[in-house]
């Protein structure tokens, strides 16, 4: 019994160290095989002329110098920035508007919430097809409006270089803004109602209530959605690939479609890895700025 007592704590200590790691083992192993390992490999391949098959030859910074000089890369990067600007404004505004109008409503709130959320749960390929029909240059809403005497919307939205990116952003936003309504609504419902009562006694109007009470109260949620918007805007792929594959003439190309085309269309896996690495860099910079601002004491 005495020997048992002396060995028991040590054995249990060793086991206590090991057991948590056994529970973590599957997620860690999967992460290493699928994400960490290939990501590190990508960093290596970014400095090679790898085609995806055979040997990779080290070529230094050639992929990166090519990237900087490549007009397609520049178009793609600028398109990602335009995308960021669009999604930092339009869906955020629509989300805040919808949530603000919905928050005081008791009758039918669930109905509205559900109606706005449904497009978000539908697959991108379907949403894209819906809008491809509605915005069709011969049979869609444009020609119909033209017959009613409003001709200026009768445009091949996805087929023209000047409109393709914005048309895709419109479709993506259509499925996205309702999600933000639900997120902001949840945040607004957590705001203390006494604040609003006090404001009304002071004679505040709707705008003042929104600006001085609602907005500061939901600021953590709002800032978080802004941060994620920036990150996702650098990753956008589905809607662009499905609707235009980056065309016409690269007019709606973004970094993610360029990686895809380079790797699987042109078999330039090394160059694709370099572009993918640059995407990660942009996301890393955004996260770093966010963390730095927070450390500086910004309440975000």
């Amino acid at each position: 019994m005495t020997t048992h007592q002396t060995t028991q704590p040590r054995r249990r200590n060793w086991r206590n160290q090991l057991v948590p790691w056994l529970f973590m083992a599957p997620i860690l192993a999967l992460n290493v095989v699928i994400i960490l390992g290939p990501s590190l490999a990508s960093i290596y391949y970014a400095f090679t002329d790898w085609t995806g098959m055979g040997r990779a030859r080290f070529i230094g910074l050639a992929n990166f110098t090519r990237m900087i000089g490549d007009p397609v890369y520049r178009i793609a990067l600028v398109n990602n920035l335009k995308w960021t600007a669009i999604f930092l404004t339009v869906p955020i505004f629509m989300g805040l508007l919808g949530a603000m109008l919905l928050a005081p409503i008791k009758r039918g709130q669930i109905f509205f919430r559900t109606a706005y959320f449904i497009p978000y749960v539908i697959a991108s390929v379907v949403n894209a097809q819906i809008w491809r029909c509605i915005l069709h240059p011969l049979k869609g809403i444009g020609p119909w409006l033209a017959r009613q005497g409003i001709p200026w919307l009768n445009v091949a939205w996805f087929g023209r270089e000047s409109t393709a990116l914005y048309a895709i952003a419109f479709v993506d936003n259509w499925h996205w803004w309702g999600f933000l309504v639900v997120v902001y609504l949840a945040a607004m419902q957590a705001v203390d109602t006494q604040l609003y009562e006090a404001a009304r006694l002071e004679g505040a109007n709707r705008w003042q209530e929104f600006w001085y009470i609602t907005l500061p109260s939901i600021r953590p949620t709002l800032v978080f959605t802004l941060l994620m918007t920036v990150i996702w805007s650098f990753l956008v792929f589905d809607y662009i690939y499905v609707l235009t594959e980056g065309g016409p003439a690269h007019a709606s190309e973004v970094l993610a479609t360029e990686v895809f085309n380079a790797a699987f269309g042109r078999f330039e896996a090394g160059y694709a890895a370099a572009v993918g690495l640059s995407m990660s860099l942009f996301c890393g910079i955004v996260i770093a700025i966010f963390v730095a601002l927070r450390r500086r004491g910004w309440e975000i």
Partner: peptide
């Protein structure tokens, strides 16, 4: 894991495909 989930799939997609 938090940072990992906000990295683009394009970072690991290409080598993963060939593996």
């Amino acid at each position: 894991f938090l940072v990992g989930t906000s990295l683009p799939a394009q970072l690991f997609l290409v080598p993963l495909y060939f593996i």
